[in-house]
Write a protein that binds this DNA or RNA. Structure first.
Length: 565
RNA sequence: GCACUCUUAGCUCAGCUGGAUAGAGCAUCGGUUUGCGGUACCGAAGGUCACAGGUUCGAAUCCUGUAGGGUGUACCA
């Protein structure tokens, strides 16, 4: 059920009949209800090419337009717009079909791709903080979305498990002589203590540096400690993923260290490809129009994150055989990715036909528009933020006496975590966004709670009406017409959101659907006495399809619904 | 300095490949009598789309410049 492309096909047919040898522009949703359901603006664009008056062209298209099936009416307006009305009978039949379909009429994409989605990527030396939130949930949404649309998605969690700070941590672990699992209970504190030692105690800092060398040279004892450390730290991350209801698992982890053995090879291959230049002691790749080189090997022989990223790119393109590789990473890394992608392609690490993209996102700000910090200026731990969300969500639950303690906890998790995720996903990912508890936990406006409420309201209808629902869907009035058309747009919206990697296109759609349903529900009674049986059945089905669409949409965003709020 | 990016209603944000009178939500004001979940719905008011040029039949959207904010800028990731 690709609504737009089906309408485009009808237009295309008219073009052929009319003998216009250009391919038509895509139709767009009408900007206003008076202008129909969709509009075709291509007549104006053709005016020059055909050297004809746009209205004449529009008339020519209109004369050849099939108005017997999907479309029922078309009008020329203004300078040459063609406004299109969908046939209510056709809409009704399509909705019925969607309702009977498990995928709600969303077709699996025609050319599925193997896609790597790289997201979350926490550093193992510290606990996850709010800075990891956006990557984690935007990435997860993208992965869910592409999976739903039929792509073969490979999630990759490129965790930071290598580098000088680990020498420090392991030295401290050894120094304190504590059991690792106990010492690491509060990773943040552990890191701070180790850092303090490192900064103050010369003996300790020397020891830490010695440990770095030891780990890198494969010292068994040190490696064991390191592994233990990573294991526990990763356990912390998994706790967060669990709370966040994100799909990442250990199988998705490809740590930085995974590429260690390949790093010398990367440098060697760049050298063989004639890309390497030594500059100020470092091995660099100079890109033509970029003054700053990509450094792949330091003067002391060490490798850098660009080297690891190149190794990872090659692995993903050649071993995993991905055709689209998406990095969900902070916008501040834009320059880095632009360069690394270019090097990877020029050096032949990644074939030309592989799409490399940096899914950039903006920074999370506090109410005052400043980067999100604790009162004393520290970073906010992600786990604390999520716990706070659950606490705040409890306050929104009415009639608590109706629920058990456990039920309230479950409900609060669904509401609170959903609110945090939805607030983030509903803004254009590239802009910075202001984090606001009150706004995100409100029932009003474009929030998860509004949609969850709409869903619960519909479920309540079906609790009251638990007998069979059958018969046709009938489009009885303008609101039903608009609601049904909106339901049929689901496929288009998801496909578009997948191409642009923009979750907010989904939230915008769901919110519009939600408000449209609320309006429909206000003015068109369903279970009230006196409603014609056929209309009742039809409206029940529209409500059902709305609920299912909201549920599916939120599921892609990683947000749950409940039958009762 | 250079590069990238942003500036839309009092506030928070939409605005897809340029298309009709720029849309929501919050806040403000005013409505909805027997309510299928009113944590809802309807309506009003509120914008020289930062500014100045340009391209176009048509620009919030594309190009150039100006102002203001943000970010990045060679051996951290």
């Amino acid at each position: 059920m690709k609504l737009k492309s089906q309408i485009n096909d009808v237009i295309k047919e008219a073009f052929i009949k009319a003998g216009i040898e250009h391919s038509p522009l895509s139709v767009t949703e009408a900007t206003k209800p008076e202008f129909g359901d969709f509009q075709f603006n291509g007549a104006m664009a053709l005016s020059k090419k055909l050297s004809k008056n746009p209205r004449e062209i529009a008339q020519l298209i209109l004369d050849n337009l099939d108005l017997t099936q999907m479309l029922t009416k078309a009008e020329i307006a203004g300078p040459g717009f063609i406004n299109l009305w969908l046939n209510p009978l056709w809409i009704a039949a399509e909705c019925k079909e969607s309702l009977l379909d498990e995928r709600l009429g969303v077709e699996v994409c025609a050319n599925p791709l193997k896609v790597v989605v790289d997201y979350s990527g926490p550093n193992m030396a510290k606990q996850m903080h709010v800075g990891h939130l956006r990557s984690t949930i935007i990435g997860d949404t993208l992965a869910n979305l592409l999976t739903f649309l039929g792509d073969e998605v490979i999630r990759q969690n490129h965790i930071g498990d290598w580098g000088t700070q680990f020498g420090m941590l392991i030295a401290y672990l050894e120094e304190t002589g504590k059991d690792a699992s106990v010492s690491l209970k509060d990773l943040e504190q552990f890191y701070k203590d180790a850092k303090a030692c490192f900064d103050e105690d010369v003996l300790f800092s020397d020891k830490a540096r010695a440990y770095v060398v030891k780990i890198q040279s494969g010292d068994k004892h040190c490696l064991q400690l390191w592994e233990k450390f990573i294991d526990i730290s990763l356990g912390h991350c998994e706790e967060v993923y669990e709370k966040l209801d994100v799909q990442l698992t250990r199988d998705d982890v490809r740590a930085e260290s995974f590429y260690n053995d390949d790093l010398p090879k990367v440098v060697e291959d760049l050298h063989n490809a004639g890309k390497l230049t030594q500059s100020e002691g470092a091995q660099c790749v100079f890109l033509e129009d970029d003054e700053i080189p990509v450094i792949v090997q330091k003067g002391d022989g060490g490798y850098l994150y660009a080297t690891t990223d190149l190794a990872a790119l090659r692995y993903r393109a050649q071993v995993l055989d991905a055709k689209r590789i998406s990095y969900v990473v902070d916008a501040r890394q834009a320059g880095h990715f632009k360069q690394v992608f270019k090097v990877a392609k020029e050096a032949g690490f990644v074939p030309e036909d592989v799409k490399l993209e940096h899914i950039a996102f903006g920074t999370m700000m506090d109410k005052g528009g400043k980067p999100f910090k604790t009162r004393d200026g520290g970073t906010v731990k992600l786990i604390d933020l999520l716990d706070e969300a659950v606490v705040k969500a409890k306050e929104t639950i009415n009639n608590k006496e109706d629920y058990s303690e456990e039920a309230i906890e479950t409900l609060a998790k669904i509401i609170g975590i959903g609110a945090v995720k939805y607030a983030d996903l509903s803004i254009n990912r590239e802009s910075n966004y202001i984090f606001n508890w009150d706004k995100m936990l409100s029932f009003e406006g474009n929030t998860s709670l509004y949609l969850q409420y709409a869903y619960a309201r519909i479920q309540s209808i079906f609790r009251k009406h638990d007998s069979e629902v059958c018969g046709d869907i009938i489009i009885g009035d303008d609101v039903e017409h608009r609601l049904a058309t909106m339901l049929l747009r689901f496929d288009d919206v998801l496909k578009r959101a997948a191409v642009d990697a923009s979750p907010n296109q989904i939230t915008t759609y769901l919110y519009e659907l939600g408000t449209l349903f609320m309006r429909f529900y206000e003015q068109n009674p369903i279970l009230k006495i006196g409603v014609d049986e056929k209309m009742k059945m039809s409206r029940l089905q529209l409500a059902d399809l709305t609920a299912k669409t909201i549920k599916q949409g939120l599921e892609i965003l990683g947000i749950k619904v409940v039958d009762k709020l």
